[in-house]
């Protein structure tokens, strides 16, 4: 029962007036990558071919529908925008050139700023900030590279990298999301 409560907005009605932020779709469409949003016909070609949707309850069309409806909180604070595998299948097929994968990137950026980034992504960003890599360098990797005749890995210049990240505002985004982690603990 609780489950249905929580998920009731996934494109399912009724929608409560107070949850509708009419300007939300324009805010998204104004961002680079979000331009295609307003062209969506909700035909479902994206959902019908989505490999993620084939196995779990996730429909790109519904994400767009929720954005178009103005369900800002529902979109930005639930896991729906984090389930896309970025395979670009829908982007290739969309009859309206909505470019869903780009729209989802815009939504993820918005959600992250509000402290709603999915924890996997937060961990990954932290890893990059600390080590300059998405995954740790291990002896095993070094050995494999040697066997494959690949040049050894160089350790990136962390100070430079962190400078770029700071300028790009990643620190604030990470802070917003860490706070949330503490809160929810």
């Amino acid at each position: 029962m609780e489950e249905t409560e929580k998920r009731s907005y996934r494109g399912d009605f009724p929608v409560r007036d107070e949850d509708v932020k009419a300007s939300f779709k324009y805010n998204v469409a104004d961002m680079v990558g979000g331009e295609g949003l307003l062209r969506c016909l909700k035909c479902g070609a994206c959902s019908g071919g989505c490999p993620v949707g084939a196995v779990i309850d996730y429909r790109p069309r519904k994400v767009l529908g929720n954005v178009l409806l103005g369900l800002k909180d529902e979109v930005l604070s639930t896991d729906q925008i984090w389930l896309c595998a970025a395979c670009f299948t829908c982007e290739e097929r969309c009859v309206q050139q909505v470019n869903f994968t780009d729209v989802v990137t815009v939504l993820r950026n918005m959600a992250s700023k509000e402290g709603h980034a999915a924890q996997g992504y937060v961990k990954m960003a932290e890893m990059v900030r600390q080590n300059g890599r998405v995954s740790a360098r291990t002896g095993l990797v070094d050995k494999m590279r040697e066997q494959l005749g690949l040049p050894p890995l160089h350790d990136p210049d962390i100070t430079q990298l962190q400078g770029i990240m700071k300028a790009a505002g990643l620190n604030e985004v990470l802070a917003a999301n860490q706070k949330k982690e503490v809160e929810s603990d």
């Binding site: 399912d12 035909c43 070609a45 959902s47 019908g48 949707g53 084939a54 519904k62």
Partner: peptide
Amino acid sequence: GRVGEVSEDSKTKNVKIWAENTETGEF
């Protein structure tokens, strides 16, 4: 719902389709 995928059963030669019923959200 616009159909997403069509595949063929190699034995029966029947076709399988994937689509979202956009009125219910059902895959």
